[in-house]
Simulated assay, not measured.
Amino acid sequence: MRITPKEELEHRISRLQSLMAKEGLDAVLVLQNADLFYFTGTIQSGCLYVPVADEPVYLVRKEFSRARMESGLREIVPFSSMREIPARLADYGYPLPVRIGMELDVIPVNLFERYRAVFPSSAVSDATPLIRRVRMIKSKYEIHILQDAAVQIDKVNRRAREVIREGMTDLELAAELEFTARKEGHQGLVRTRAFNAELFYAHVFSGADSAVPAYVDTPLGGLGLNPSFGQGAGLKRIERNEPIIVDFAGCVDGYLVDQTRVFSLGDISGLLRKAYCDMLRVQERMMELIKPGVPWGAVYDECLALAVELGYADSFMGNKGAQVSFIGHGIGIEIDEYPFIARGFGEMTFEAGMVFAFEPTVVVPGQGAIGIENTFYLSHFEGLRQLTCSDQELTCL
Rank of each mutant, 00 (worst) to 15 (best):
M1H: 02
E8D: 10
L9P: 04
E10W: 04
H11S: 13
R12A: 13
S14M: 12
L16R: 01
L19C: 03
L19S: 12
A21F: 04
A21G: 07
L25M: 14
L25S: 01
A27D: 01
A27P: 03
V28Q: 02
L29R: 00
L29P: 04
V30K: 02
F37I: 03
G46E: 01
L48T: 00
A53G: 12
V60N: 06
R61Q: 10
K62Y: 13
E63I: 11
S65V: 10
M69T: 03
E75Q: 06
E75M: 07
S80Q: 12
E84W: 05
D91Q: 11
Y92C: 01
G93E: 07
V98S: 13
R99S: 09
M102T: 00
M102K: 00
E103Q: 14
D105K: 07
F112V: 11
E113N: 15
R116A: 15
R116N: 09
V118S: 05
S122Q: 03
S122A: 15
I131N: 06
K138Y: 08
S139E: 07
Y141V: 05
E142Q: 14
E142V: 06
E142D: 15
I145C: 05
Q152Y: 00
V156S: 04
V156N: 04
E162V: 12
E162Q: 14
E162I: 11
R165W: 01
A175W: 02
R182F: 13
K183E: 15
G188E: 07
V190W: 00
T192Q: 00
A194T: 12
F195D: 12
E198R: 12
E198M: 13
L199P: 03
Y201T: 13
V204Y: 07
F205Y: 09
D209I: 03
A214F: 01
P219S: 05
L220D: 11
G222D: 09
Q231A: 13
Q231H: 12
G232H: 08
R237Y: 02
F248W: 11
F248D: 06
G254R: 02
D258K: 06
D258S: 09
T260R: 10
L265I: 15
L265M: 06
L272G: 01
A275S: 14
M279V: 12
L280E: 14
V282K: 07
R285D: 07
M287T: 09
G293E: 10
G297P: 00
A298Q: 13
A298M: 10
A298Y: 07
V299E: 03
Y300N: 06
D301M: 02
D301T: 14
C303Y: 05
E309Y: 07
L310E: 03
G311I: 07
G311N: 06
D314N: 11
F316Y: 11
G321H: 04
G321K: 10
S325M: 13
F326W: 15
G330R: 00
G330F: 04
I335Q: 14
D336Q: 09
I341N: 03
A342W: 01
R343Y: 11
G346D: 15
T349N: 09
G353K: 08
A357I: 02
P365E: 02
Y377F: 15
Y377P: 08
F381Y: 13
R385C: 15
Q386A: 06
L387T: 04
T388L: 08
T388Y: 08
E393Y: 04
L394V: 01
L397P: 00
